[in-house]
Write a protein that binds this DNA or RNA. Structure first.
Length: 325
DNA sequence: AAAGCGTGGTG
DNA sequence: TCACCAAGCTT
């Protein structure tokens, strides 16, 4: 494997020492500097951890916190969520984004309640089979909820590995086999140590080894960092941002905001454009409709977006109108 | 396997 | 301002 020091190749023993040093340094740093997050508390249930992991997919911690607390209060066990309509999960999702995650969490809760007697599967393989759970989330829940030795590979850990070991500013655009291999090689043999390494590396990426302006002065492993040693070379490629203005996604988002605000089905004609005054339930719906209309989507784009939401199960037909499922 | 999927804070 | 970015998954 690549090793985090310059110069002559290390013997296997020396390399193990270097890696052991990284393990210790990060564990100490984590113990002193980690954020106090509720899903890291020892009394947090596996369900709470799963919910947090799904909410944290592409969504920052600060926005997840209040919604996660609300979900835990309202649905402390998977069966509690499974007993509700899926639309309640979508509504309670609020503005976290990617609302299909709420749908999948509801579906996962149903599987857990119906097929697992209400307890989460405790293996990566079992977790991976749940709706909305991919490689990252399965490994994270296996490690953080069940103490298993699993190589967790998220965007933070990928960036830490890219810099610390590979000497590159950013990881490749998509996860490579080499990255999985490296993550596996760096993982401590001991289960407890492996869990601590996973959280610590993730935390380091989140608050020190950040994408934009890394705080290398506060980094516990800066002296071992290959990227630093190489003079912090710039990224070898330009990440292409996600289009937003004028896209179906923007329209879908505006439609979902309408449905979340509505307590009854919204007639289709109201989505199409500002028309004659409409009796709504008081204002929030009208305000979200106005936001949608301000985007002025072409009729075919609006149609495509509505059909997409129906196909995805994020919207349903009721009495000739649209509502949450 | 590349593209699609929300949202809001920030440099 | 505006593009980038955030504990990815699915098809």
């Amino acid at each position: 494997m690549a090793h985090p020091t310059r110069g002559a190749p290390l013997t296997a023993t020396a390399e193990a020492d270097v890696i052991g040093g990284l393990h210790r340094a990060l564990a100490d740093w984590f113990a002193a500097e980690a954020r106090d997050l509720p899903w890291r508390h020892p009394d947090c249930s596996p369900w709470g951890i799963l919910v947090s992991e799904v909410m944290l997919q592409q969504t920052p911690v600060v926005r997840v916190l209040p919604v996660w607390r609300e979900w835990m209060k309202r649905w402390p066990r998977p069966a509690d969520l499974a007993a509700e309509a899926a639309g309640e999960a979508v509504r309670a999702w609020g503005r976290l984004g990617y609302p299909r995650r709420a749908l999948r969490l509801h579906a996962a809760a149903t599987v857990i309640a119906d097929e697992y007697g209400g307890s989460l599967p405790d293996t990566e393989e079992g977790l991976l089979a749940l709706p909305g759970v991919g490689g990252y989330t399965a490994a994270a829940v296996a490690a953080f909820a069940f103490g298993r030795r699993a190589a967790v590979v998220d965007t933070n850990i990928r960036r830490v590995h890219a810099r610390l070991v590979r000497g590159e500013a950013l990881p490749a655009p998509s996860l490579t086999a080499a990255e999985r291999r490296l993550a596996e090689e760096l993982l401590p043999d001991d289960r407890g140590a492996s869990v601590r390494w996973n959280v610590a590396a993730m935390e380091l990426g989140a608050i020190v080894c950040t994408a934009r302006s890394p705080r290398c002065d506060a980094c516990p492993v800066a002296s071992a960092c290959a990227w630093r040693a190489a003079g912090e070379p710039p990224p070898s490629y330009v990440p292409k941002g996600q289009a937003w203005h004028g896209t179906d996604r923007q329209v879908r988002g505006a439609v979902m905001a309408v449905l979340r605000a509505a307590s009854r089905p919204v007639p289709r004609v109201l989505f199409e454009g500002p028309g004659p005054a409409v009796a709504d339930d008081g204002g929030p719906v009208a305000a979200q409709l106005a936001r949608l209309h301000a985007l002025a989507p072409a009729p075919e784009q609006l149609e495509r977006s509505l059909e997409g939401l129906l196909a995805d199960g994020l919207a349903a037909e009721h009495d000739g109108g649209l509502a949450l499922p």
